[in-house]
Write a protein that binds this DNA or RNA. Structure first.
Lengths: 194, 194, 194, 194
DNA sequence: AATGAATGAGCATTCATTCAT
DNA sequence: CATGAATGAATGCTCATTCAT
């Protein structure tokens, strides 16, 4: 009983994810989502107050999944640089293996469809990661550029790398993932004077 | 009369740019564009076959403007690195001074609203720039990563930099522009062993 | 258990009365009635076949209450004029003390939501009162206008008086109730030549 | 051209009047109004911002018609009582000849569908009539009951009379109209002591 | 009896596009 | 070329009612 209920909710979210990434938010009728989910139109509105709540709910769920993927199995005893690299690799792999989820989160991060409140909630999950950058700067591990830029930069290249590997799947290899991280990192890292 | 005609066409394009960036394509009725442009609803369809043609036309115009801004006043006799830096700085400055135009081009570059044909035409403008990267790689000026990644990387960080400066306008300064380029470049540049 | 059942039924009727008078029939979802009654949506349909039956049932209940209020404690030995005045005063007082109930009965008396059958049943209760008018006419107590008009007139002014006192509660006083009846009555009563 | 435009607007208003009085506001889909008016659904919303504006517009139009009917051809030189009687007779005749219009105005006068603003505008038209009552009271022509009640009373019986004659059309005659007015009036008029 | 998730027909409203003037 | 009234398919959302538990 309960599982059937959750099932429908999940099916709606899944269908919404597929359709939103394929067709965009405004070009995806709720009726189509319901149809794709194998559910009546009214059912969608039983689970989500309206279309906007659906998209916000979806965004929050996926953002959380992404963040969980980042920190999964990161060796707590490793060095800061190694931690960041692990997270980067984890994240890129998650992005490659969950293309829709990744695209959705990236595409709607700056979208007006996502409410301010949702963005704040999502940002909360990000906080712990952000601390790592601050620490890396104070440790002298990375360039002393102001932290806002570092954060934008890091996430930007991260997204860029995933997008790239989705565009050229044949380029995916451990070597190229390392290369991508290296290009990112050597743009941040303090160049040690010899 | 002729100038009045051009006027209306321009006004429509201008209104469309403002509205598309503020509200998105699907959330911008043609009637609103017409109203904002001070023109009758029918007039829009005299100048553009339909809404899609309008957006494609707009995209192409702006992409061309952006490309022209890049190569403007680049010293032909300068070194390759200096040329690339000039273009970068030019581009970032254009992006800062034309926020709507920049956002529109970036936002819709990967959008399904832009037809394949339009994208190809736009890509044509990019060709000459792309050559510079190939040359830079073969010159040993930048890392021998495969050129597709370099191109994505370069453009990605470029967009990232502009977005960043739009988010934090108080950070705009010659110094920070240089810093941004430096962070980009030292992620690409071969690190010379001492 | 049985009392709990009755309780729910009563709660539904009570909630329906409040909501129907505040928002109208069509603007009151059954789900809202259920919610306001503290009951599941399905429960409403256990007690009433459908929304229409609910409203008809409610109408009949309230009409009966109103009629009972009219004849309550009327002195059987009093004169006809005194009886009618007692009923009038009783009725106005009931209307003042049961504003929702009064409004509902008045509002839906001519409404298509109330079925023909229901109206006839309700009219049955009215019959005995109607006889009084016929008698009053034949007694020469009131003007020899045809009885249909007298009945409409009497009830019309009655409703009017209640509505008036609900609009201006500060005007409620024994004196003004008498005044209202007097205005009603002297429009009916044969003016005796001196 | 212009006449065609007005035509459609008028047709919509007319269809709306018929349907609203027959089926009520909430039970009348805009699609049905459009259909009945021989017009596309969109056309309705071209002329009226939404359903609510349509009903408010309609109310205002009809209220104005009713008021105009009241004061039409009233002899300015006649006595106050004669003036009021003329208006009463005019009004009842208008109500009889325009049953839908009359019912609509009466039915929605106290309805929440009519906005406060609309009611105020409509009340404005009523002002001059209201003055007549004040004058009649100060002239000692009618009972010195407080004017709010007199106004409610007068209008109430007026509506009542029209409703009555619509229910019993066979009772319509000059004689009965006079009778109805007489019953109204002798409930107001000061009974002169002999 | 009671529950509340599910249903899907129905509704108000929007909007790209047309076309007579 | 320009206008803007008219169109009607499409869409987000509501709600009375059902039914498995």
């Amino acid at each position: 009983m309960n599982s059937a209920v959750i099932d429908k909710r999940e099916k709606i979210l899944k269908a919404a994810l597929n359709l939103f990434t394929e067709r965009g938010f405004h070009n995806t009728p709720t009726s189509l989502i319901a149809k794709e989910a194998g559910v009546a139109t009214g059912t969608l509105f039983h689970h989500f107050k309206n279309k906007e709540e659906l998209i916000n709910r979806l965004y929050l769920d996926l953002k959380k999944q992404k963040m969980n993927a980042l920190i999964e199995a990161v060796d707590e005893t490793a060095s800061l640089q190694e931690k960041l690299k692990s997270m980067w690799i984890n994240g890129v792999q998650w992005g490659i293996m969950h293309p829709k989820e990744f695209q959705f989160v990236m595409q709607y991060s700056n979208s007006p469809f996502i409410s301010h409140l949702t963005k704040e909630q999502a940002m909360g999950e990000y906080q712990s990661t952000f601390c790592l950058f601050e620490q890396a700067i104070s440790d002298g591990l990375i360039k002393p550029a102001y932290p806002e830029f570092v954060a934008d930069y890091f996430e930007g290249i991260f997204n860029l790398a995933v997008s790239h590997f989705r565009k050229y799947p044949e380029k995916i290899s451990e070597e190229n993932l390392d290369l991508a991280f290296d290009m990112c990192w050597n743009g941040i890292a303090r160049v040690l004077e010899s």
